[in-house]
């Protein structure tokens, strides 16, 4: 039988050991890697961002503000807001409907549907515009017929809206699908057993669960809708004051060597991008658990 050994409570401690951390890089290697990454990002991200504002403010705040006093610029801003105001809600409704069908039911061809929804992301913006020209243009499939009815799609607002909806098509749906998949249908089924109607289930059970994911998707969708260039460039026809969105206005000013004007308006778009990033980061930080875990593009 062993007798219990006795231990002094806190024995005098021998020397501390000057040995490097057992696992991981040395402090030097860490610093080098961090420096390399930060330098790369500074060069490729920070410098261009700083450039926009520097160039825009080159002639001072007066010139910067003057760029927005231009009637064409104002028309472009109104048009961009209008296009976003139509295409974002359209994709919001679609995204919710698609996510509801895909995550709450199982049916043949479900995976194919998911793939098809993602399709516009792999189409070049220019091609996204082109397809609508082929459909609705003067020599297009249905263009001449619509023209006879007095409906102009290409080189007009409907074309801009269609092209914008196309390029922002997947944003809301692909944000909602993983979230609703992860949450499962148990909550809605519980509401169903309590006798709730479909609309009640959606507004009082589903919506509160997905609202932050929905906002996240809308945020990204809106940023792209307001900033899209290639697709709208193809369908716009560049009619000043009529079919020029803000990014197209930037192009026109730039090509006319009105650099201060171009960069002033570009800096407004950059602010929009920064606000989007801040909100997005906030949502990820605050509601990260409720957002989709998948990589986002």
């Amino acid at each position: 039988m062993a007798t219990g050994e006795t231990f002094p409570l806190d024995p005098p401690r021998p020397r501390a050991l000057p040995v490097p951390p057992p696992i991981g890089e040395t402090a030097m290697a860490r610093r080098l890697l961090v420096a390399a990454a930060v330098l790369f990002l500074a060069l490729i991200l920070a410098l261009p961002l700083a450039g926009v504002f520097t160039e825009g403010l080159r002639k001072g705040w007066g010139a910067w503000l003057a760029a927005f006093a231009d009637p064409d610029a104002r028309a472009a801003i109104r048009l961009t807001l209008l296009v976003a105001a139509i295409s974002v809600p359209a994709n919001l409704v679609f995204g919710v409907a698609a996510a509801w069908a895909i995550t709450r039911f199982s049916f043949p061809g479900r995976n194919l549907l998911v793939t098809l929804i993602d399709l516009p992301f792999s189409v070049s913006p220019v091609v996204s515009g082109l397809v609508f020209v082929l459909l609705f243009g003067a020599n297009g499939l249905v263009g001449p017929f619509l023209k006879a009815q007095g409906i102009q799609v290409i080189f007009a607002v409907p074309g801009l809206v269609l092209a914008t909806i196309f390029v922002t098509f997947p944003f809301v749906a692909r944000e909602l699908i993983p979230i609703m998949q992860a949450q499962g249908a148990a909550d809605e089924e519980a509401a169903l057993t309590l006798g709730a109607s479909g609309w009640t289930i959606f507004t009082r059970v589903t919506l509160p669960n997905i609202k932050w994911g929905l906002l996240y998707g809308v945020l990204l969708c809106n940023a792209r809708a307001m900033g899209e260039f290639g697709a709208v460039s193809v369908v716009s026809g560049h009619i000043r004051g009529l079919t020029n969105t803000v990014p197209l206005q930037v192009e026109i000013l730039y090509n006319e060597y009105d650099f201060v004007g171009a960069f002033a308006i570009a800096s407004a778009l950059a602010v929009l991008a920064l606000v989007t990033l801040v909100l997005k980061t906030f949502l990820e930080w605050r509601y990260g658990d409720e957002l989709a875990r998948s990589a986002r593009h």
Binding site: R13, P22, I23
Partner: peptide, 20 residues
């Protein structure tokens, strides 16, 4: 895998405390 704050570990006669 962890550094002791104090004390020694001897593997046989060898002081392993300083061995990574």
């Amino acid at each position: 895998l962890e550094q002791p704050s104090a004390g020694r570990v001897l593997f046989g006669e060898e002081d392993a405390s300083a061995t990574p």
